Simulated assay, not measured.
Amino acid sequence: MDLGHVFYCIGMTADFRSRPFDTVRTHVSLLADLLERQRFQSMLYLSSTRVYAGSGRTHEDAPLAVNPGDPSDLYNLSKLAGEAICLHSGKPRCRVARLSNVVGVDPHSHNFHAELIREALSGRITLRSAPSSEKDYILLRDAVGLILRIGLHGEAPVYNVASGINLTHEHWCDTLARVTGCEVGRAPDAREYRFAPIDIVRIREEFGFAPAPVLATVPGLVEEFRKCLDQ
């Protein structure tokens, strides 16, 4: 049976450190079985811009560095192994989309923005990382639109799916404080985490992509979270 156009969205998120076997299984083993045993018209493997951690360059063709001795790099290593088996499987039209931090409505998510919104609605945010920490965020609707276009029409092997704009934790907290009136505090051992801005030249040139401003959606996100949490 021909599976048609396949979007491989299986993966671990914040719990990958406590579930190492599931992380490798979902990012690599299940993918390899699918590539080996099934037929399809195209395959898009959803990876992550987290693979650029520690790298100064974030273009899709840039060489990447990982450290097997770092438990945080288990995620990066497994994603890169998934990318490699996908791109070198010999199957037609296999591509990779490296997703940035996707912002949408999921009140039970452990993602950074979801936890901040829940804390803001409780009246107080306590930052566990430095306010100057920063990374790239992309709205869910932008990400989905790009994923569909890449999966069906992409010409390159790898694409960054990101906004190309870093937001600091302070940006998030200031915006949430204005919208909800919450207080903002900081844990005494808060460390700074910074990621290089993600290169989005490829999606700009091939698809004419222009990211929507993430923080402008915060009032709507807060209202949707409030509704879901009140149910």
Rank of each mutant, 00 (worst) to 15 (best):
R149F: 05
G164C: 05
V103L: 08
S18F: 04
C182K: 01
S72E: 14
D142T: 11
A196L: 01
P20G: 02
D174V: 15
K227V: 09
V184G: 03
L146W: 10
P157D: 12
A187M: 12
R118I: 03
I150C: 06
R194Q: 03
H171I: 03
S78A: 15
R37S: 14
Y52N: 10
P68K: 07
A62K: 11
A130I: 01
V179T: 15
K79E: 00
T26E: 07
S129M: 14
S122D: 14
S55H: 06
L167K: 03
N101K: 00
L121K: 01
S55C: 15
H5S: 11
S42Q: 12
L176V: 11
P71M: 00
E60P: 06
K227I: 08
D73L: 01
G104L: 03
L148F: 08
F21N: 11
G185C: 09
M12Y: 00
S89I: 07
T26F: 13
L31N: 13
S89K: 06
L77Q: 04
Y159H: 06
P63N: 05
S122M: 13
G164T: 10
V201L: 10
L77I: 15
G123F: 09
A65M: 14
E134V: 08
P107N: 06
D33I: 12
C86S: 15
Y193G: 01
V184N: 08
Y45G: 07
Y137H: 13
A120Y: 08
C228Y: 02
G185I: 05
G11T: 05
K79G: 00
R98A: 03
F7D: 05
P20Q: 07
E170D: 15
N76A: 12
S72F: 14
W172P: 04
I147V: 15
S89P: 15
L152S: 13
C173L: 03
D33A: 14
L77W: 00
V28R: 00
F40E: 13
I138C: 05
L229E: 02
D15M: 04
A32D: 15
L99W: 09
H108Y: 12
